[in-house]
Write a protein that binds this DNA or RNA. Structure first.
Length: 374
DNA sequence: GTATCCCGCCATTCG
DNA sequence: CGAATGGCGGGATAC
């Protein structure tokens, strides 16, 4: 084999290589900040790849989890589409997922898209196409790719369903994998599944649909669904950015420069001084809310399952940040006022903020504009 | 050690 | 056939 990695200059060399700088999650965040602007409706594959400084392969990863594909070009539908998509997913999920999954676990027709989805952009004057036809004809399936059974997109959908279709509030990827796998975890299948789940989780996290946490008692890492709690419909007081800390802020550019993982990379030097910190400082806003679990954790076959006792303060344990504090004088207090019910979720507000921001640009798009980008 | 997950080979599908 | 997609898992990195 071409294992020509004889040298392997391990050690020595400053090695500015940092795995974190190249994480899918960060990439996704950058991706979002890059395309999440008012006028963007199209996403060029190659364009995105070069803009972000990564190979196309990685863009596929992102796009597959939060988008449907087309060809080389993707139309970006804002976050406004998420809500509807989630609803659809939920219905679909409930429809087939009574309680005993365990069934075909793949008969799902997959006709929708969960997060932001794209519609293909017909390069040739799509005349008859009118994506407005909610009740998909489903004729898309048919000879469909059985390959899709294992697609990232489908896995993502099922993963999301798992949250929105049950009262489970948090789940570890191991469990999720076991679930979505229907107990076929004979071997490394499980391993692979979890790997994929990590990828998905990263992307979803970037969109703030889920958040990583740790089991209250256990050290087990898990994910909690944030989804869209509130409705977010009031447009009157929108609060754009706010303490989103880590979000984007990737030094000067959003480009994930390319440093090979292990390959030599001598020529670097120079530049370097880009990234600063970013780290996940999260913001200590939320939290401080015990909120006992009221949601019945029916869960499935129990399995070991950890207790979902009172939510742990997990979310923001490490504070060591400091500086943070951007003198946020922004709109201060923001719309926080209009939230008489603290019923549950402090996160809700946090999320609302995001939604508001997204919403501002909220592109209904509705019309695809076949265009060539690159 | 375990948790995380990047990289990129190479199978599939598309054109 | 080549190009576009995107499974898949080895093995490096983070903790």
């Amino acid at each position: 084999m071409p294992s020509s990695s004889a040298i392997s200059d391990s050690s020595l060399r400053r090695h500015t290589y940092s795995r974190k700088q190249k994480s899918l999650g960060l990439l996704c965040t950058n991706f979002l900040s890059l395309y999440n602007r008012d006028g963007v409706h199209l996403v060029g594959l190659d364009d995105a790849a070069s803009q972000l400084g990564v190979e196309r392969r990685r863009i596929y990863d992102i796009v597959n989890v939060l988008a449907r594909k087309a060809k080389n070009q993707y139309t970006w539908k804002g976050f406004g589409a998420i809500h509807g998509a989630l609803e659809e997913l939920k219905e679909e999920g409930l429809r087939e997922n009574c309680n005993t999954f365990d069934r075909g676990y793949d008969n799902s027709k997959v006709s929708d898209d969960e997060d932001d989805e794209e519609t293909l952009s017909n390069p040739s004057t799509g005349s008859q196409n009118d994506k407005s036809n909610p009740s998909s004809a489903t004729l898309k399936s048919l000879k469909n790719d059985n390959r899709r059974e294992k697609s990232l997109a489908l896995l993502t959908q099922n993963f999301v369903k798992l949250f929105i279709c049950s009262s489970v509030e948090m789940i570890s990827l191991d469990e999720a994998a076991r679930f979505l796998l229907g107990d076929a975890h004979n071997a490394s299948i499980m391993r692979t599944k979890v790997r994929r789940l990590y990828d998905i989780a990263n992307v979803l996290s970037s969109m703030n649909l889920i958040e990583k946490i740790h089991m209250t008692d256990t050290r087990k890492p898990a994910f909690r669904w944030l989804g869209m709690k509130g409705k977010v419909e009031d447009e009157s007081a929108f609060n754009p950015n706010l303490n989103e800390s880590r979000k984007r802020m990737f030094g000067t550019d959003v480009t994930n420069i390319t440093f090979k993982r292990n390959k030599l990379d001598i020529f670097i030097d120079g530049n370097s001084s880009k990234n600063l910190k970013m780290q996940n400082s999260e913001d200590g806003t939320c939290l401080h809310q015990a909120d006992r679990n009221n949601s019945k954790v029916e869960t499935k076959q129990s399995s070991k399952s950890y207790q979902f006792g009172p939510f742990a303060p997990v979310s923001v344990p490490k504070v060591r940040e400091s500086n943070s504090v951007k003198r946020l004088h922004d709109w201060d207090n923001l719309a926080s006022s209009c939230r008489p019910r603290y019923q549950n979720q402090a996160l809700k507000d946090l999320f609302s903020h995001y939604m508001e921001a997204w919403k501002s640009w909220y592109s209904e798009v509705a019309e695809k504009k076949p265009k060539q980008i690159l």
